[in-house]
Design a binder for these strands. Structure first.
Lengths: 214, 214
DNA sequence: CCCTGTCAATACGGTAGCGTATGGATCTCG
DNA sequence: CGAGATCCATACGCTACCGTATTGACAGGG
């Protein structure tokens, strides 16, 4: 499954915290704060931040808001909890990423290709992109985007680009990423068939990643 | 004023339709449907589609919704009218654009540079990007974006790129445009100073526009 | 066995917005 | 000047949601 023609579905098993074949299942159908956060992220992925409401979410989970307000102060508290969880996971991903491949060019190419094939992350990122008005969302996105652009700049630097060029190339690449997300995920600009899509990704790679002539 | 560090303000003189020094001003403070549409576009530019409501807009104009519902069926009718007006103007702009410059490379470079310096259009486009869920917004954006990408593809073709490369370069360029809009206008990724900004634009030009070697 | 902590349902009050109905004001034109 | 058209205000009902308060269900530990 790649970025194009992808559908969005819950895909949250009761997070990593519940390995239950049977053992540690305290109640039937009772919810933890974590479960609410997971559900919130699912809802955001599917319908965007604006659709995240406590009553709608409660209905979706088959309970009433009486439950919700036991776990959280307010709707915004839930949003912030969800953002927090998401941000730390994304940041961890970035770090894990750090030096998987030695050759600097191959590292970048691999990053581009992998990015084009993952999904869940981008769906949420894209949804959050549409909610940048919200005061809780913007700082999270600013931090993450900054970090990723810095990472890209470093990678381009390692390819022999000047400091200035590396930064600008990083900005350009990231802008292309963000824009493509919106075009595909939100605008649904036309469902490109997979072969075409691969060709596009390769074109991007060749256009944006210089040939390591340092 | 360029894309960076730009503030968003009404800037709608009572549209082009009212050239009044004094002559054709029928009433004092009475509103036409056009005036509502203009105000709607202003509001969208400032606060996004989600903020477009009839009561808020009425307050803003110093009247009550009693007035609004005389001119329009519903909130959505207003949105559609605003989208219609905006779309036709944008399309006209695209056409007017068509062949202002003979040399195909210079035409593209000029387009990129001019795009980086205009404002109003992009603000609304960017606001609409965040409202692509709305069934009235998406088709408009699909048409416009398609047209612009086609235009770009033609331009790149004229530079000697293969049909496939031209299309992919057009997609990439447009994605970079869309992404940069979100990054700057919505995320406010850090206010780049003008010199830096110009350098970025030149970097984009050099990276995305090949040297006409056909 | 019951007591306490945990999670959930119900009921309530409050806000903000949509759309309708109806009457008032003002302008135009015959 | 009066009649119709045009624009606006007011008042109303309705919906969807937030947040609070109160009570209920139920588990596990003493």
């Amino acid at each position: 499954m790649d970025l194009v023609n992808a559908s969005v579905r819950p895909l949250s098993a009761p997070p990593p915290s519940a390995p239950d074949p049977l053992p540690a299942k305290p109640d039937r159908g009772r919810l933890s704060a974590d479960a609410w956060v997971d559900a919130a992220l699912d809802l955001i992925a599917e319908q965007g931040v604006a659709a995240l409401g406590v009553e709608p979410l409660a209905r979706r989970l088959g309970v009433t808001k009486g439950s919700f307000y036991w776990h959280f102060e307010s709707r915004d508290a839930l949003l912030e909890a969800a953002l927090k969880r998401w941000e730390t996971r994304e940041m961890e991903g970035l770090i894990r990423e750090a030096d998987r491949i030695a050759d600097p060019r191959e590292r970048l190419v691999d990053l581009f290709r992998r990015t084009s094939r993952e999904m869940r992350t981008h769906v949420i990122y894209s949804a959050l992109l549409k909610a940048l008005d919200h005061p809780a969302v913007r700082p999270v996105m600013q931090r993450l985007s900054q970090r990723r652009i810095q990472y890209l700049a470093l990678a381009f630097r390692a390819l022999g680009l000047s400091r200035r060029d590396a930064i600008n190339r990083a900005r350009l690449s990231y802008a292309a990423y963000v824009g493509f997300l919106q075009l595909i995920l939100q605008l649904r600009l036309q469902r490109i068939d997979p072969a075409d899509y691969d060709a596009y990704v390769e074109h991007v790679v060749e256009t944006l990643i210089p040939p390591l002539l340092a």
